[in-house]
């Protein structure tokens, strides 16, 4: 049984905040270098909100706070994209004790909602690559009847592969897309933050597994 709480998302927020410079530097290589700044700003604001709540909010409530901060205050591309992801999670993950398959279903739903607002698809050198590979890897582990820890590990490992695959891709979306072939050799910043979010979430869930 997986136990979810606001702590998982506070750890995710901390990871994004401490990766501010790294994400902006990556983004600056092929786009405009603001990814880390905007992500760190959004997650700092959301974290403050979560911490200010008493009693501590649920995972779903915390996820919704992140979503509304991103929708209302951050903007850019990442506001609507991550806003949609976290809002989708908040809609589906309404219980704090779940099976790994419920986590899969929630991220699958988030991925579908994301495809509704963005035309980017797997292979376009965006965070979609991280998310899609993570879901594929997780779904294989579920089909193989693996244990919850193994399914979680597959989720994180798939995210890593998807993230790393963006390095050799040609950007098709966002500001990096105009570089064409010149975008090869650089990791996509959004794919990176998505990997950090998934891997940190998985690590924090695994740490709480009994």
């Amino acid at each position: 049984m997986i136990i979810l709480s606001c702590e998982n998302l506070i750890k995710v927020a901390n990871k994004i905040i401490e990766s501010k410079q790294y994400l902006s530097d990556l983004d600056g290589l092929i786009a405009d270098g603001d990814h880390g700044i905007n992500m760190a700003k959004g997650f700092s604001m959301a974290k403050e909100q979560i911490l200010a709540c008493s009693p501590a909010p649920s995972f779903a409530e915390s996820s919704e706070m992140i979503a509304s901060t991103l929708f209302n205050d951050i903007g850019g591309s990442m506001g609507p994209i991550y806003g949609t992801i976290f809002f989708s999670l908040s809609e589906v993950l309404d219980r704090d004790q779940i099976e790994a398959v419920a986590l899969y279903n929630a991220f699958k739903f988030a991925n579908e909602e994301l495809m509704d607002i963005s035309e980017a698809r797997k292979g376009d050198k965006t965070l979609m690559d991280t998310l899609a590979c993570a879901l594929e890897s997780m779904s294989l582990a579920i089909a193989d009847d693996k244990s919850d820890p193994e399914i979680l590990a597959a989720f994180s490992e798939g995210a890593k592969q998807g993230w790393e695959s963006t390095k050799e891709m040609v950007a098709k979306f966002g500001r990096a897309s105009r570089l064409g072939e010149r975008s090869i050799g650089v990791l996509d910043a959004g794919a990176t933050s998505c990997y950090l979010i998934i891997s940190t979430l998985v690590d924090s869930i695994v740490a709480d597994l009994d």
């Binding site: 405009d32 603001d34 700044i37 905007n38 700003k41 991103l70 929708f71 209302n72 205050d73 951050i74 903007g75 850019g76 591309s77 506001g79 609507p80």
Partner: peptide, 12 residues
């Protein structure tokens, strides 16, 4: 009005 080089949010 957005952040530097970044779209305003949907709310804005």
């Amino acid at each position: 009005i957005g952040e530097i080089f970044s779209s305003p949010s949907a709310k804005h």
